[in-house]
Simulated assay, not measured.
Amino acid sequence: MALKRPYTDSAMRDEDAPRKKRKGFSVGPANLPDGTYRRKAQKIKNDLIQRAKIKKAYAKVKAPEQSGSNEMYRHQEAETSSTQPASLDLHPDRQAMLDRPVPSVNAPRHSKDDTDDISELHRRSRPKRSIYLKDTQMAKQRQLEAEARRMVREEKDRERRAMLKARRPDREGRYRLGRQSKILLHKVQRLVEEGKVDRQ
């Protein structure tokens, strides 16, 4: 049969035994190689230590203030109970607002003084600028450019078809030089307007 352990009081045991030094806490695995992960773990650990120190310092500062604030609160309660109760008179601004005449249903919403205030307010506050203003302007510009290109393309196509028609000989086999000259003149005018041909 095994021997029984001798009975000792737990309080006696704690006093007799020397206190063990607490180990520090660890963040992340202990066998990390020196590098990014280890530095990150060390940074996290240092931040936690710093926060704990700040909390401890804050608790030390807050404790006396907490007890002092309770006393101040009691002192203020005693003062307010000893002072006279608040009067039932209205504040002058509130009284003036209540004394104003109530506008009738058919009356205009704003008086002349109010409209002056409103117009001043509108002058001061600028309209909110759209965040898409630049984009919409660029889109409009691109749209106008595309429209101009389309019109030029249609004009060129019309000229080409008219020129093909004018180059066909008539029934007697003669070329229609009058029609060709009008089309060529129109084409030259368009090129001068576009700036592709210099005026001389």
Rank of each mutant, 00 (worst) to 15 (best):
M1V: 12
K4G: 09
S10V: 09
E15R: 13
R19I: 02
K20A: 11
K20Q: 08
K23S: 10
G24P: 08
F25P: 01
F25Q: 03
S26Q: 14
G28W: 01
A30P: 12
N31P: 04
N31K: 05
N31D: 15
Y37F: 08
R38Q: 07
I44W: 03
I44T: 05
I44A: 08
D47K: 05
D47E: 11
L48M: 09
Q50M: 06
A52S: 06
K53P: 01
I54M: 07
K55G: 07
K56A: 11
Y58L: 14
K60I: 10
K62C: 03
K62F: 09
E65V: 10
E65H: 14
Q66F: 10
S69A: 13
S69I: 14
N70E: 10
E71V: 13
E71Q: 12
Y73E: 10
Q76N: 12
A78R: 08
E79M: 10
T83M: 07
A86S: 09
L88R: 11
L90W: 05
H91T: 06
P92A: 02
D93H: 11
R94V: 15
R94T: 15
R94F: 14
M97K: 14
L98M: 07
L98P: 02
L98D: 05
D99V: 00
D99T: 01
D99Y: 00
P101F: 02
V102T: 07
A107F: 00
P108H: 04
S111M: 04
K112Q: 14
K112W: 06
T115A: 06
D117K: 11
D117S: 07
I118R: 05
S119T: 14
E120Q: 14
L121K: 14
R124I: 06
R124C: 00
S125Q: 14
S130D: 15
I131T: 15
I131W: 11
I131P: 15
Y132N: 15
L133G: 13
K134Q: 14
K134P: 05
D135R: 12
T136D: 11
M138G: 03
Q141A: 15
Q143G: 09
Q143A: 15
L144Q: 10
L144E: 08
L144I: 05
E145L: 08
E145N: 09
E145S: 06
E147T: 08
R149W: 06
M151T: 12
M151S: 09
V152T: 10
K156M: 09
R161A: 15
A162R: 13
K165L: 09
K165E: 13
R167C: 06
R167L: 12
R171M: 09
L177M: 12
R179C: 04
Q180K: 10
S181R: 15
S181Y: 04
I183S: 02
I183C: 02
L184C: 06
L185Q: 14
L185P: 00
K187D: 03
V188M: 12
V188D: 04
Q189M: 09
Q189W: 03
E193N: 10
E194N: 05
G195M: 01
G195H: 01
G195D: 00
V197W: 02
